[in-house]
Amino acid sequence: MNRYERLNTLLEILAERGRVEVDEIAAELDASAATIRRDLDHLAGQQLLTRTRGGAVAHAVSYDLPLRYKSVRHADEKQRIGKEAAALVARGSVVGLNGGTTTTEVARALATRGDLPHVEGETAITVVTNALNIGNELAVRPQVKLVLTGGVARPQSYELIGPLGTKILDELTLDITFLGVDAIDPVSGAAAHHEGEASINRLLAARARKVVVVADSSKIGGSAFARICGIEDVDVLVTDVDASEEDVRRFTERGVDVVRV
């Protein structure tokens, strides 16, 4: 287990249990007590937990892990999902992308597609996003016309949220939007943990002719605080091969095409 994986696991355990002890967690993660102390000190410095004598207790933000820690979870699955989803985009399309680790993989796959080369005077694709990290990666790609929505930056996800972003989206029409979600269910639809993200993600979906949810199988059947859109608004779900046949059946019965990679 590398350091980022260990830090991520520590935060997840802390979010679940509320408190951890150094000796106990060192044994559980097969690491030395000194290593765990350094990890806890590092996370405390990031204001992600509160150190106690012999351990740590959960800080509120631990329940919403920053993107840099989320990126190590299901990394291989997210890369496969991103590549498969990017293949759905035709040259000349206007593409919407919200923030998240899986949509970041979609953006990377789009930027490196061999059949979307830069041609002088032409735009291969236009990307509209509220994600600062995706904007940063695509800004240097000459074949991509990049539009940022504007808004107030949310540090955990690098997403721009709030009414400033909605003003721009109200004026645009998208061919396809890729939505990263915190949860998706065939009954309740797609959802996010933060209401501000859900609001602008809802508009990204509403402005698109086609909505594709990109989510690894751990997000299926879960729940989150704020609704993004109903399942009737989702055209395609791209997920990984660990999604069960029963889950696939429930989505297809609601009119959603499911792709497992």
Rank of each mutant, 00 (worst) to 15 (best):
L148W: 00
D240A: 07
R37G: 00
A75N: 02
R209P: 02
N201W: 11
G196I: 07
V234P: 09
S217K: 14
G114S: 10
T35N: 13
E12D: 02
F178S: 07
R38E: 12
E159N: 13
A87F: 11
V212R: 01
A15G: 15
S71G: 00
T252D: 05
G92Y: 07
T101Y: 06
A198M: 01
E12H: 01
T149C: 07
K219A: 11
E171I: 03
D64S: 12
E5A: 13
I161F: 01
V152Y: 14
E197Q: 10
L138F: 01
G99F: 08
L148I: 11
A208W: 03
L48R: 06
S157M: 08
Q47V: 00
A183Q: 09
T166E: 15
Y158L: 15
E77A: 15
E77N: 10
A60N: 08
S199W: 05
L138Q: 03
F178Q: 07
R68C: 02
V72C: 03
L48V: 07
L49Y: 08
I200N: 09
F251I: 09
T35A: 11
T126Q: 13
I125T: 08
G221I: 13
E159M: 14
I168A: 12
I228R: 14
V140D: 14
H59F: 02
V119M: 09
T103V: 10
T129W: 02
R260P: 01
V241C: 02
D76L: 03
T173D: 14
D242Q: 03
A183H: 05
R249Q: 13
L138A: 02
A205Y: 12
Q143K: 02
N98H: 05
I25L: 15
L204V: 03
D41C: 01
A153E: 04
L43M: 09
R73I: 11
T166G: 13
R80I: 05
L116A: 07
E122L: 14
